[in-house]
Every structure is written in structure tokens, then in C-alpha cells.
Design a protein around this nucleic acid. Structure first.
Lengths: 138, 138
DNA sequence: ATATTTGCAAACGTTTTGCATAGTG
DNA sequence: CACTATGCAAAACGTTTGCAAATAT
């Protein structure tokens, strides 16, 4: 029983080199990674898995609650949730660049309130601000 | 020059019956709509546009800033932004059901702060809480 | 009259699937 | 040994594109 998923328990499956590598890369990465970014980093360490393996593995790890998926502007990003690294995003509607941003908020308090009110067990949240970055403000 | 998009001005284009219908349906809808949901509502009023027309129109209206797109768990949803109807979402990781939720927050205040700090012109934001709904808490 | 919008069919890229093989526990 | 993970090729899926006809201004 882990902190990430209180409701269901899944096996992590067999610790193959591909799975191990994905988990290590994601856990060492300071931010989230797209599929393409992950594949690049895998290739860097001479691991070249098949496309379907990547898809299956990411799906599996997401369902297991080991990693979380966040879709921004049509692209999926993956990360291993770490409370102390939690941040949000500024997404430029023009150039699509994504910037991390930390805001001093009390979403945790809100989460507890919602959990109680709606009987909804919140695992994590995502907050994105959409707009125009400095460069794209004509 | 409208409130929705301060940076770029786009034409709304020609007001064809399809475009009119999409705008009316989205503006009358209390919440956001998926592509499938929109098509269903169009069909209800005997408008059966081609797939590519829907794609092109939604893309066009999104770029124009008339409607906004929000991608949750891989599905795109569209809505006409209305400040007083603004809300956030509870997304169940198990059954994928999406529930609206209003939280009393000061994200507006945060937005102003970020806008100043990062010189980022925020048009809107999206906040989703991921977790397990009542039914799916085994 | 002219420029935009539409439908159609084909192309495209991404994700998923079935199956035989390789690898893990 | 039994079962899971992998690679491969094909299929499925959603989305985009080029072009000719229809439509709005």
C-alpha cells in the first residue's frame, strides 16, 4: 500500500532494464518529460525500446500509480510525483512553450475540503495558466 | 479588440450556419463539450457537418479566441469562456468521469502576480484534481 | 465577383493489437 | 517452469490536407 494510490494496489511487474531505466530517468528528471524526451534519454544510455513497448510501459506505470500523466496542448508528459517539487505551468498559446512556475498557494487546503465535501480521493492536481509569453506579446 | 484576446486580433470569418450553430451551442451549454458531444448537439438540430469542417471550425474559433480548448485525459473539450461560470474539474482516474467543482480561491490574485513577475499575459487557466470518485473507491 | 467555407477522399502520424520470441522471477 | 515483457508488422484511430464545388459578403 503506497501513498500514491490508496485505492487500488497494483504490482510493479517485473523489473526489466527498460522499466528500470524509465523509472530512473523520470525520477532523476527535475520536470516532466514527453514521450519523445523520454525516448531521447533512453537512447542516450543505449536503450532503444520498440514504440509499442514504450506505450505499454507508460500505460502500465501510469495505471500502477508510479508515474502520472499530464496532457498539455495535446502532448502527454510524464513524471514521478514528488510533493516538494510540485509546480504548475505557464503555457504560451502562440509558441506553445511551457514554463514551470511555483505559486504560493493553498491548494492543499482546498483539496482536503473537496475530498470531504465530494467524497473524492484526490491523488494529485494540475494547474495550467494559458496566455502569451513575453516574446509572443506583439 | 476583445477581452478574450488582447494580443492578436482575428476576424470571426463568415458567419455560416455551421459556425453560428457551434457558437450558439457552446454558449448555451453550461459546461464544456467534447467534439463528440458537440456533433451530437449539431445533429439534434439537423446539422451534419463533415468531420474536417468540425476540425477546421474548432481550430479556427480557438485561434480566434472565441472559444477555448481544454484537454483532459486525452480528450479535447471546448467552451466559450465566461468569467462568472468559471469552474474546475474533478477527474476520476478509474472511471474517467469528470465533475465540475467551484472552489473559492484567489487564483485571480495569483494570475496578476504571475503576469507581473513573468511578464506573461494570462488569458485563462485550467485546474484539474485527479483522484478517485465515490463509486471507484473500493 | 471574390474570397471563404464546405465535402470528399486520400494521406498522415500516433496509438493499439495479435502473435511469436525472449527474458524474468 | 510459468508467466510477463518485448519486438515486429499490421490494424485502428483521430486528425490533416488538396482540391473542386458551394456559399457568404
Amino acid at each position: 500500500m503506497n501513498k500514491i494510490n490508496k485505492n487500488k494496489s497494483f504490482s510493479v511487474g517485473r523489473l526489466t532494464k527498460i522499466k528500470k531505466a524509465i523509472i530512473i530517468i523520470l525520477s532523476e528528471n527535475h520536470c516532466f518529460l514527453s514521450k519523445a524526451g523520454l525516448i531521447e534519454k533512453l537512447n542516450d544510455i543505449k536503450i532503444n525500446p520498440n514504440r509499442s513497448t514504450i506505450y505499454r510501459e507508460l500505460q502500465f506505470l501510469t495505471k500502477s500509480g508510479i508515474i502520472i500523466k499530464n496532457t498539455i496542448s495535446g502532448t502527454d508528459y510524464y513524471e514521478i510525483p514528488k510533493d516538494h517539487h510540485h509546480h504548475h505551468h505557464l503555457v504560451c498559446l502562440s509558441c506553445n512553450r511551457i514554463e514551470k512556475v511555483k505559486i504560493t498557494n493553498q491548494l492543499k487546503k482546498q483539496e482536503k475540503q473537496i475530498a470531504k465535501q465530494k467524497n473524492f480521493n484526490i491523488i494529485n492536481h494540475s494547474l495550467e495558466f494559458y496566455g502569451y509569453c513575453q516574446k509572443c506579446q506583439v
